[in-house]
């Protein structure tokens, strides 16, 4: 269970929050001009990358306010938390590790614990 630094309440356990999926997905304004496929992508599709991910959280068991976070999904490290009206951080501000904590193991070895001998 990770620690999340709510911008309004301070550091709290992850269990006090609900995850809101991908951030910065705006509701299309003139949806009547979108094809079924384009509209369907807004309704049903969200990104799920390994690595740097911009997402939303809400402090359900606290202040009930929404905010954004940048998280490295391969290590679960929260890189930045920013309020909804604050400037969105640039991806270049973060180094994309794309690594599991033990580095990428050999394909098929299932071996995640032993450090690779160089």
């Amino acid at each position: 269970m990770i620690l999340i630094n709510c911008p309004y309440c301070g550091e709290r356990d992850q269990s006090e929050f609900s995850n809101g999926g991908e951030a910065h997905v705006a509701r299309p304004e003139n949806s009547e001009n979108l094809s079924d496929k384009e509209w369907g992508e807004y309704v049903f599709f969200r990104a799920n990358p390994k690595g740097i991910f911009y997402e939303r959280w809400v402090h359900s068991h606290g202040c009930r306010k929404w905010f954004n976070a940048v998280r490295d999904t391969s290590t679960d490290e929260i890189l930045k938390i920013y309020k909804l009206d604050e400037k969105t951080p640039e991806p270049k501000d973060f180094s994309n590790t794309l690594k599991t904590p033990s580095g990428e193991p050999e394909v098929g070895s299932g071996n995640f614990t032993v450090k690779k001998q160089s």
Binding site: G20, A26, R27, R56, V58, S60, K65, W66, L84, D85
Partner: peptide, 13 residues
């Protein structure tokens, strides 16, 4: 209630 808050805070602030 949670959905109303979500729309008010994130979509129509």
């Amino acid at each position: 209630l949670a959905d109303m808050e979500e729309y008010l805070q994130t979509e129509w602030p």
